[in-house]
Nucleic acid binder design. Sequence first.
RNA 1: GGCCCCAUCGUCUAGCGGUUAGGACGUCGGCCUCUCACGCCGAAAACACGGGUUCGAUUCCCGUUGGGGUCACCA
Length: 461
Amino acid sequence: MSKVRTRFAPSPSGFLHIGGARTALFNYLFAHNQGGRFVVRIEDTDRQRSAQEFVDAIFDGLSWLGLDSDEEPVFQSARREVHQRAIDRLTRAGACYWCFCSPERLDEVRKQAQTQGRKTMYDRTCRDLGKTPSPDEQAVLRFRSPLDGETVVNDMVRGVVTFDNAELDDLILLRSDGTPTFHLVVVADDIDMGITHCFRGEDHLTNTPRQMLICRALGAEPPVYGHLPLIVGKDRARLSKRHGATSVSAYRDQGFLPGATLNYLARLGWSHGDDEIFTKEKLVELFDVAGINSSAAAFDLDKFTWVNFQHQKRMPAAQLAALVRPFLDHGAVVDDAILPEAVELLRERAHTLVELAEGLRPFTASKVVFEEKSVAKFLTDDARALVGELAGLLDGVDRWSEESIESAFRELIESKNLKLGTLAQPVRVALTGGTQSPGIFELCRVLGRGTTLARLRAVAR
RNA sequence: GGCCCCAUCGUCUAGCGGUUAGGACGUCGGCCUCUCACGCCGAAAACACGGGUUCGAUUCCCGUUGGGGUCACCA
């Protein structure tokens, strides 16, 4: 049995879309689960719409996700010989014919069929002409699709899907400018690359019987397909900009982790019992075709955010600290000694790297930015006096530990018969500028004695 | 419109003939508590409809309805 080989074949006419990323992921997971290989192929035969910018963006996105091609990526535009050989073979087999109909006429025929409620297929005028174009003649090469019988797609996610051949059009293989179309190159390249399995979007399902027919005409057995349900928005319509960000890079910029993105995307249409959180390695290990759902799944930012939070919670603080760095404010003062500790305190309070960076401000900003409301409420004259007293006590503490800090707090409130909150909130405002932060003792500890005392004294009186 | 796909809480889903229909997100209560979170406990919340098949259907079959995809010299 030949080794499993899957491919992800985006066309570089846009950034890496969240749906494309999931398609890539499923191909990657399947291949790796089966001990096979995952290959990226750039479908840039439509040079009008292809752009280098998008090619870069796609590789960039895949690489961020950790879904790199196991082999040198393939560019369709550079494989004219492969495509030409396929054309030659189809020609020899009599599986295609030249069509001289003008685009205008085709349009006409289509419109008429449309209004009369008939099939909008090519009327096959040239099918039996048996003509070859002279050098100065415009013509396209069409596939000679069978007129009867049926083509059965044995889909990995949908099971058996049967199409009547009579419903299938005579597709254009070669444009009048001599360039090959999608249908020809996909089939030729899949054969040439030895692709055995392929997951793609459900929008390709109706292309599949046609491509299978072309494949068999080329004397090869088609890959096994799996058509993934589309990702839709909250309103059940196909995911688009209208629903918010759709590109992978947008989520990266919003502070989502690659591992969490993979996890969420995998769960969107695939499940393994009641499990929710998976590492990439676990996904590779557990991935199975039986777990794929066949109905469209709605993209839910809330759940994605929660999944991201779970990954942040599980990640070592040092690693998280490194990842959050690009999200820190410009001019942030980063003390390498305390960043991981600060991250440790904030990680349970932040769902994304962006939120984490925000929470880190008291540790990275050179000076405290005070919230007016918090100051007005908690930094009263009495409170400022109390804070001053605390500063004195903390100054005298032997070792700067959470225990000793807490003792100082307790000593002060007990001597005045106060509740901890009466002291903690003003201190919190003094230290962070606001009323929300990690526990007050750990906050002081990680901030360090110098910063803590300086900030307390700055508000004390 | 033709062809094709799909249908369990608002959302992601478990279920693979017999279950009080389970979990997760979100929502709403409560507990914990120095704030915010985290965590914990609890609540509301679903088998689209109609026919079969069967002793018994969420589960199998057919239809209806509803959603989606696709019908290019785009991919």
